[in-house]
């Protein structure tokens, strides 16, 4: 289970972005969280991805309560969760070639030896062909960079995926392609998914169930 229990979070404890948000995802389940822009769902996605410490409430991953937060949760917990954001250009280090971008989490966890094989395999899965792996972010399109960011999110074989508006900038075909990559991964590894977004048609087609933001938070 990935559990958020009455979580309050924000950037200033006096004026949290949201209060009392609760959401539970079962192993292998795909949950869509629908909300209008600016409602705070991206902050919730960051909490669920263990990248943003909540001001109050409980977060648990696979039955283990997350403790020892600094700004983020301890790394050994975070590696259970892969995360993809809306804007690949803001989340990808512009100096890294795509190959190194994808391998970054492996290097950071001391598993450099696996990198070549794993990157080649994921590049194939994500549809990154030819010489794209040798390019830097400014030399590829948004869609290609987002494919690389998705590959990076999968590189440690996470049990959970958090996708925050992963396809909001992308055309219909690239959107369908990235969702297909996520779904193929989930079928193979039984991973659970939290997909945060505003596109009802997309999330209802993609996920097992969708939750409304207003029903997840006690008070905004």
């Amino acid at each position: 289970m990935l559990e958020l229990d009455t979580v309050t979070a924000g950037y200033d404890p006096r004026t949290p972005v949201f209060r009392g948000a609760s959401l539970t995802i079962a192993p292998g389940e795909a949950v869509g969280l629908l909300g209008p822009s600016g409602c705070g769902k991206s902050t919730l996605a960051r909490v669920a991805a263990l990248l943003h410490r909540p001001d109050a409430g409980r977060v648990a991953v696979d039955g283990r309560e997350v403790r020892g937060w600094r700004h983020r949760a301890p790394r050994d917990l975070r590696t259970a969760i892969g995360v993809v954001f809306q804007q690949p250009r803001m989340s990808a280090d512009p100096r890294l070639r795509l190959r190194d971008l994808i391998a970054e989490p492996l290097r950071a966890t001391g598993r450099r030896a696996e990198a070549d094989e794993r990157v080649a395999e994921l590049a194939r899965t994500a549809g990154l062909t030819g010489d794209l792996l040798g390019r830097r972010p400014h030399e590829v399109s948004d869609g290609q960079l987002q494919r690389a960011c998705l590959a990076r999110a999968l590189v440690l074989r996470p049990r959970w995926l958090v996708c925050d508006e992963m396809t909001a900038m992308l055309d219909a075909s690239t959107t369908a392609a990235l969702v297909a990559v996520v779904e193929a991964y989930r079928r193979e590894h039984g991973a659970g998914l939290l997909a945060v977004g505003h596109d009802r048609v997309l999330l209802e087609r993609w996920c097992d169930r969708t939750e409304e933001w207003a029903d997840c938070v006690r008070t905004a």
């Binding site: 392609a177 997309l202 209802e204």
Partner: peptide, 19 residues
């Protein structure tokens, strides 16, 4: 045709490959 078919309210299947 492929672009339209890729919409989630239609087939939701991507066009193979990249431009």
């Amino acid at each position: 045709r492929g672009l339209l078919a890729a919409l989630p309210e239609r087939d939701f299947t991507p066009i193979e490959g990249m431009p």
